[in-house]
C-alpha cells in the first residue's frame, strides 16, 4: 500500500474512524467518499478498520472464569457484609 505515503491519503486516514462513527461533517464526508471511490487502498483500510471495530463491539460480555478460590472468597465476603446489614 505504497500510495499511503501520499499526503492526501494520510490526511483522509485521520478521518476514517470519525467516518465509521458517523461523526464526520457532510463536506468532509463527501470529500472522503469521493476519495474512497478512487482509492482501493483506503477502501481496504476502511473495511479492515470496520472489521476491527466490529470485533471490539463483540468482545463485550465474554465472561472470564475466575480462579475458584477468588470466587469463594468474594461470595463469603459479600455474605458477611450483607448478613450484618440485614440484621
Amino acid at each position: 500500500m505504497e500510495s499511503h505515503a501520499h499526503h492526501h491519503c494520510l490526511d483522509l486516514i485521520d478521518r476514517l474512524n470519525e467516518y465509521l462513527d458517523g461523526e464526520l461533517n457532510a463536506d468532509s464526508c463527501a470529500e472522503l467518499e469521493a476519495h474512497l471511490r478512487a482509492c482501493p487502498e483506503c477502501q481496504e483500510l476502511l473495511l479492515s478498520l470496520q472489521q476491527t471495530v466490529d470485533l471490539l463491539h463483540h468482545l463485550d460480555d465474554e465472561p472470564l472464569p475466575l480462579p475458584p478460590a477468588l470466587e469463594d472468597r468474594l461470595a463469603r465476603q459479600l455474605q458477611q457484609r450483607l448478613a450484618t446489614k440485614s440484621h
Binding site: A75, L78, Q79, L82, K85, H87
Partner: peptide, 10 residues
C-alpha cells in the same frame, strides 16, 4: 442477606 443470593450474584 440470603447467602445463596450472594453466591449466585458472584
Amino acid at each position: 442477606g440470603d447467602p445463596d443470593a450472594c453466591t449466585c450474584f458472584v
